[in-house]
Amino acid sequence: MSSYISAENINLTFRPKNREAVTALSEFNIDIEQGQFVSIVGPSGCGKSTFLNVLLGLIPPNTGVMSVNGRTVTGPGTDRAMVFQEFGLLPWRTVAHNVELGLELQGVAKGPRRETCQGFIKMVGLTGFENHYPHELSGGMKQRVGLARALASDPDVLLMDEPFAALDAQTRDIMQAELLRIWHEAKKTVLFVTHQIEEAVYLSDHVIVMTKRPGRTKKLVPIDLPRPRDYEMRVSPRFNELKLEIWNELKDELSVGGDEDSGHA
């Protein structure tokens, strides 16, 4: 396989104790080239977070092969970092210490580590909040700490699970622009889960539409908008065509009530 990130026929079923088994991923396939920005959209509960966890190496699939850069994923590695959907900040650590976590685990000395992280804290607009604890931050601020933490460990692959969901519209626009800049400069491969089609189109090279649970790739939509992208592009006819195309793919999967998924939505 020549692709950089590849998932081959991944099946994954959760079997929680005393509860019914849930098949989150079934025959899931994906191929992503190095340096691409790929978004994943799909109904709630379809297995998006689960797939990111497989790619991160936290959950081994029941069957199938997950590989990055030609190596099978057998566990977590410093080449991948995730911005978690539920933040995952250590409550007993200040903002600065949370951001430093990755470098600390890699054994980087205190001085350089602090310096690097200072830059990322500034980037996400949290200068002045270095010594705050997570419970003193708003949801959007926590999300930005999570982003700074993932970026600070300088991964090759950046996994982002609805990273901007908790942000207000203006901050979201700024963060999107920042993310594109970082991605472009640092040549990272980004996997970006979102519920906002507009965001997916604006940021991505490809948008993957997933089916409802058990999740499978339904459609890979190439986004042929030129780069660098700017804000005006969002009102261009092509942008809206792409939005509509993705929406049409997605809407069949979003059934409200009646089906087995209604409880999770």
Binding site: T78, W92, L105
Partner: peptide
């Protein structure tokens, strides 16, 4: 569990998990 996963995903070993997550919790 999420915090355990965070530390693991960033390359932390059992000792890291013990001292950076479990003890402070």
């Amino acid at each position: 569990q999420l915090l355990v996963n965070v530390v693991r995903s960033m390359g932390g070993n059992d000792k890291d998990i013990y001292f950076k997550v479990i003890v402070p919790s």
